[in-house]
């Protein structure tokens, strides 16, 4: 079946079974490989995309459920030269290591920090319980995210 997606502001289509996990369509059909397929069970968060702005695990979402909605992948949020606040903070704090978890981490935390820009450390950690990182030990990611609010405070 042809599935029609509105992804990163573009109409795209793919001839796949409607219950194909969205992550497979994004990666294998649309060749947007920034979204990572790691656990395929909704625990690691590496495949997180936004569906109508809501962070969603694309490994557990049948592609048909994304039809008629706005899908945003990591390729749609910004890149070198026009990084968003979360990406900026993570770069500035030298947090990245292997990098495989970060596309999903950026998607989850971008949505969260927009909703709760002044969230305290403990809340950010709780919000991150669906994003696993095997390299960094998290704390420096949290430091980076906290710096966003701190920076806005001083510029305000």
């Amino acid at each position: 079946m042809t599935m029609r997606l509105f992804i990163n502001g573009e109409e795209r289509s793919a001839a796949v079974h409607p219950l194909t996990p969205l992550v497979d369509v994004i990666r294998d059909e649309l060749l947007l490989t920034g979204t990572k397929s790691v656990c395929r069970e909704g625990f690691c968060g590496a495949c997180t995309v936004h569906i109508d702005g809501v962070p969603t695990m694309s490994c557990l979402l049948p592609v048909i459920a994304a039809e008629g909605k706005a899908v945003t992948t990591i390729e749609g949020v910004g890149g070198p030269g026009n990084m968003n606040a979360v990406q900026h903070a993570l770069e500035e704090h030298d947090v990245v290591q292997c990098g495989m978890c970060f596309p999903g981490m950026v998607m989850s935390m971008t949505a969260y920090m927009e909703r709760r820009p002044a969230a305290p450390r403990a809340d950010i950690k709780a919000a991150m319980s669906g994003n696993i990182c095997r390299c960094t030990g998290y704390e420096r990611i949290i430091d980076a995210l906290l710096s966003i609010a701190a920076k806005e405070d001083t510029t305000a």
Binding site: L19, R40, E41, M57, P62, I64
Partner: peptide, 26 residues
């Protein structure tokens, strides 16, 4: 019946066949 799909889409992880037919109730 498929609602949030979080259980059914994990079928392969449980060693089961991925779902091929469903009524989506969302």
């Amino acid at each position: 019946i498929m609602a949030g799909a979080t259980w059914l889409m994990r079928a392969p992880v449980r060693g089961e066949a991925p779902p091929k037919a469903a009524v989506l109730i969302g």
